[in-house]
Computed example of a mutant assay.
Amino acid sequence: MRPAPLLIALIAGGGLAGLAVPFLGWPLWQWQLAGGAMLAIAALDAWRLRGRPTPDVVREVPEALPLGIERDVALCFETHVRQRLEVFDLHPGGWTSSGLPRRLSLAPVSATRFTYRLRPTARGDARFDGVQLRLRSTLALWRQSRVAGVPQRVRV
């Protein structure tokens, strides 16, 4: 789990606000109370993100792909809670793709499907290792990377 830019900006702003204590004579306890509240909110947001379920992902790709020709690959997501995430398909390295990464906002109890284009560049057996998801916390203070879906083999 990593802090999102919003949390980093809040921490920097809180540190700069601490300069008001020695230079403007503001009470130290108020700055400490604000920092403690920010810490508690960030910890609660992180805890809620860790407990959030990973969406179910299914990849739709033909068993055999022609060499050097772009094909559509579909990713289908199912979830029971509202989620905001970024999607990166872990397709074989070196293959050119367009339409990734993709940002999605999944509605609760819904299915979402999107396609992207992929061009194989080498013959033989290839392996898709799953789908990498970067989930955002409810308050957008944290990001967590997860891998969903099952590995899949295709022939080129």
Score class of each variant (00 low, 15 high):
66 P>K: 05
61 V>N: 03
107 A>D: 11
124 G>A: 10
119 R>E: 03
100 L>W: 11
65 L>M: 13
91 H>E: 05
69 I>C: 00
89 D>G: 07
81 V>A: 07
120 P>N: 04
78 E>H: 06
81 V>Y: 02
90 L>C: 13
54 T>P: 00
136 R>S: 02
120 P>M: 08
103 R>N: 10
108 P>V: 09
106 L>C: 10
88 F>P: 01
60 E>A: 12
126 A>K: 04
76 C>D: 10
54 T>E: 05
139 L>V: 00
59 R>L: 14
53 P>W: 08
64 A>I: 11
67 L>A: 02
138 T>H: 01
53 P>M: 10
136 R>N: 06
106 L>P: 08
135 L>P: 00
134 R>A: 02
79 T>N: 09
109 V>T: 09
83 Q>H: 08
122 A>W: 11
81 V>C: 10
113 R>C: 07
53 P>T: 03
133 L>K: 01
59 R>Y: 05
108 P>N: 11
70 E>H: 04
66 P>W: 10
127 R>C: 10
120 P>T: 09
88 F>S: 06
58 V>Q: 15
103 R>W: 14
65 L>D: 05
114 F>P: 05
119 R>P: 01
57 V>C: 11
82 R>I: 13
110 S>N: 05
96 T>E: 08
111 A>D: 01
129 D>M: 12
123 R>S: 14
90 L>M: 15
116 Y>H: 11
113 R>K: 12
59 R>T: 12
98 S>W: 12
117 R>F: 06
125 D>V: 14
118 L>Q: 01
110 S>T: 07
84 R>V: 11
129 D>E: 15
117 R>A: 13
84 R>L: 12
122 A>I: 12
106 L>S: 11
91 H>L: 11
127 R>K: 08
110 S>M: 04
102 R>K: 15
57 V>Y: 00
133 L>Q: 01
126 A>S: 09
69 I>A: 08
123 R>M: 14
130 G>Q: 11
78 E>Y: 03
133 L>W: 04
134 R>G: 00
135 L>I: 06
90 L>W: 10
77 F>I: 11
110 S>E: 13
110 S>G: 08
73 V>M: 05
112 T>Q: 07
103 R>K: 15
57 V>H: 04
135 L>F: 02
73 V>D: 03
92 P>E: 14
93 G>L: 15
80 H>T: 14
63 E>K: 14
118 L>C: 00
130 G>L: 11
129 D>G: 01
53 P>I: 07
99 G>T: 14
67 L>G: 00
65 L>Q: 02
86 E>A: 14
75 L>I: 07
104 L>W: 09
56 D>C: 02
109 V>I: 03
